[in-house]
Design a protein around this nucleic acid. Structure first.
Lengths: 154, 154
DNA sequence: TTGACTGCAAATCATTTGCACTACG
DNA sequence: CGTAGTGCAAATGATTTGCAGTCAA
């Protein structure tokens, strides 16, 4: 709600100009919390609000929003970059389950990675600043389906 | 060594034909164990051995080798797919440290993920079949460098 | 022999960029 | 006003695909 107001200041604090298109794109992410959107999808949403907006603007805006820490990017096997609204709180415990059958993405929050990170930092003398953990498998919906139909797997 | 021999049978067992180009590409991966190669890089290597080979063949071969379980793909932020020889043994404990300064990729082997997976499988009723874990940070070389020079960060 | 495989060039697809125009500060 | 930001179209870069010729089985 109030986040809509802040975007202007956030932009200006970092030396960016406030523009309608940036606000609109940001709102799309706010309205689609927890949805991983491709640039194309964001563009299609943006068109509803600003029919003249160009997709290049979306690409550029998304980079700015990421730089501002408002959204975060993830790339799955298809190679297409997707973005979602960033929730500061769970940054380090926020992982993805990717269903290899229906491509659904499920969020999980677990933070068992801390001890692992400590181990690695010591062993490799590598200063870890971030991580990215994805699990692949079959979601509960698809498991039930395949149990029901008992079809060939693929 | 003997792996070179097996490729023919592996291909044929899965209904693929054995070809010189497939063997050559596979050999490149064997010779570059632990190196994450882009298709372009594999192509350049292949050219040394088979000057007539086309890059489309590399793209197609790499898919076959992946399908056969001989190599595995990873994608980093640059969106380019890289492949490396798969080592059956450490499939589940093989992770990557990505240095955000020099882009070096370091392998780590730790298997603290099992208990995490069990937790998630139970909590989400999601059958995990694979995972992908990357850590981002600064490798020991870059840490020393920045300590030495004490330059601006970027 | 014959269909899978290859090489080449053209096609795709996501993303980037050059440029003239617009509008934020 | 001056410049960052935008829209558009063309450029790029990785990957894919159509097709005619080649070769493994």
């Amino acid at each position: 709600m109030k986040e809509h107001r802040e975007i202007k200041e956030i932009l200006q604090n970092k030396g960016y100009k406030y523009t309608k298109q940036r606000e609109s794109v940001y709102e799309i992410f706010v309205e689609n919390r927890n949805v991983h959107m491709t640039t194309e999808e964001v563009y299609l949403e943006a068109l509803k609000v600003m029919p003249e907006i160009g997709i290049a603007t979306i690409y550029r805006t998304v980079l700015v929003l990421e730089e501002l820490g408002l959204i975060s990017a993830i790339t799955f096997e298809d190679g297409i970059t997707r973005y979602e609204l960033k929730k500061e709180d769970d940054a380090h415990t926020h992982h993805h389950l990717v269903c290899t059958q229906c491509n659904k993405i499920i969020e999980v929050n677990v933070d068992l990675l801390e001890s692992l990170e400590e181990q690695i930092e010591e062993k490799e003398s590598f200063k870890i600043t971030d991580h990215n953990l994805k699990f692949y498998g079959v979601c509960c919906d698809c498991r039930q389906e395949s149990e029901g139909t008992k079809n060939e797997k693929q």
